[in-house]
Structure formats: structure tokens, C-alpha cells
Design a protein around this nucleic acid. Structure first.
Length: 195
DNA sequence: CTCTCGATGCGCT
DNA sequence: GCGCATCGAGAGA
């Protein structure tokens, strides 16, 4: 399958978030493919978005958010977990889409091993869970998803509008607008969406 | 089933 | 020092 090109990621963040549904996130682990279809995504729209890590401008932690589109932004949270985003829009915007859940496709044994023997929907139905399943950590922050060899996204089956649901983002803080805006997208009825 | 809480690094105020 | 774009274990119903 073909990788999503740079132009895909440079579109506005909501368009990218919506269009990522159904596409396949692929990790190369020492030559072994581990991948899953993206079933849930959230949009974080730059410095004006009070729920975004970009709200206070560029810092050491969020630097890759302000870099060119089509790269990974991986952050460490609660002293325990990693979460994976794709950087969107032109350099300097500070926008990204958080991948929140995957439907495992290839490398199920590897995912089970990395998830401590957990299986089925528990493998990757949350933003930190999918990072454990695919072996994503801060070493992959800033990785190029278009040209890189460790992590990329392939075009898979498109999801029709009729199967896309949307709602407020999960677990965020911020002003009323940030709390209420419907920037979480998921595949309606898909069992692998986070709880 | 639902609810609460501990883990625990580190950027930001 | 505070609080975080989370997860999973444990308690109670």
C-alpha cells in the first residue's frame, strides 16, 4: 500500500483528523511489521486551542508540533505513558492530530507480548495503549512519517461520512470552547474505539 | 458493573 | 510545587 504523502498532512487539522480514520499506522520493529487501522482521532488546532500543548507557544517538549507536517509528535504524560500525534498544517502552526485507538491488523503476537499478554480490543484502544503495542516512545518524536523507516501511515480503506461519529475531546482542560468543540472523530460502532 | 486512586517524569508558573 | 491529551488494580454494590 502507498504511504500518505506530505500534502495529506499539510491540510487543515480537522480534515486530516477525519481523513486518518481507516488509514493504517505501521511500525517497523527490527524488520517485523506491526500495524493497525486508525479508528479514533482528535484534532488539536494550534496556539488558540486552550486544550493543546501548543497553547503557550513552542517549547522544548512540543517543538515537533511546530515543525513541518507529516512528522510524529510523541509526548510523555503522567510520568508513565506516551501518546502519538501526527503534525498537521504548515510549519509554525503548532497543530496536530492525536491518534487515540487502533484496530490491530498485522503483528498481533508482537502486540500481545508488548501489552503484557492482553488481547483483543485491549491491545490498542487508547492513546497510550497503542504506543505500548507498537513500541512508540520519545525516541520517535520528530520522526518523518513520509520518508522515515520506523513509522509511517499507509492508505487503506476510506471510511464514508455515514460511518464517522464526532464529539468533544476526552480528558482535556481549557476554556468552555475547548471543552465543547467536537474535534474527536471515530468510526461509529467500531469495537476498538477507546472507552 | 461503577468508582476511586496510585503511579511517577517533567514542563511550566 | 502543581498538574497533566492515561491506565489498570482494587473496592464496593
Amino acid at each position: 500500500m502507498d504511504r500518505l504523502p506530505r500534502d495529506f498532512y499539510s491540510q487543515d487539522t480537522m480534515t486530516v483528523a477525519r481523513a486518518l480514520l481507516g488509514q493504517q499506522l505501521v511500525r517497523d520493529l527490527e524488520g517485523q511489521r506491526v500495524s493497525g487501522r486508525i479508528v479514533e482521532v482528535e484534532a488539536y488546532d494550534g496556539q488558540q486551542d486552550q486544550a493543546s500543548h501548543a497553547r503557550s507557544g513552542p517549547t522544548e517538549r512540543n517543538a515537533s508540533m511546530f515543525g513541518p507536517p507529516g512528522h510524529a509528535y510523541v509526548y510523555f504524560i503522567y510520568g508513565v505513558h506516551y501518546c502519538f500525534n501526527v503534525v498537521t498544517e504548515p510549519r509554525g502552526k503548532g497543530a496536530a492530530a492525536l491518534v487515540r485507538a487502533l484496530e490491530p491488523v498485522v503483528g498481533l503476537d508482537e502486540m500481545r507480548a508488548r501489552r503484557g499478554g492482553r488481547d483483543g480490543i485491549a491491545l490498542a484502544n487508547g492513546p497510550a495503549k497503542l504506543c505500548y503495542a507498537l513500541g512508540i516512545d520519545r525516541a520517535l518524536d520528530g520522526t518523518d512519517l513520509v520518508e522515515g523507516k520506523a513509522l509511517w501511515i499507509e492508505r487503506d480503506e476510506a471510511v464514508p461520512d455515514a460511518h464517522v461519529a464526532r464529539g468533544p475531546r476526552i480528558g482535556v482542560r481549557g476554556d468552555e470552547w475547548a471543552l465543547n468543540v467536537q474535534w474527536r472523530f471515530w468510526i461509529d460502532g467500531n469495537a476498538y474505539v477507546s472507552k
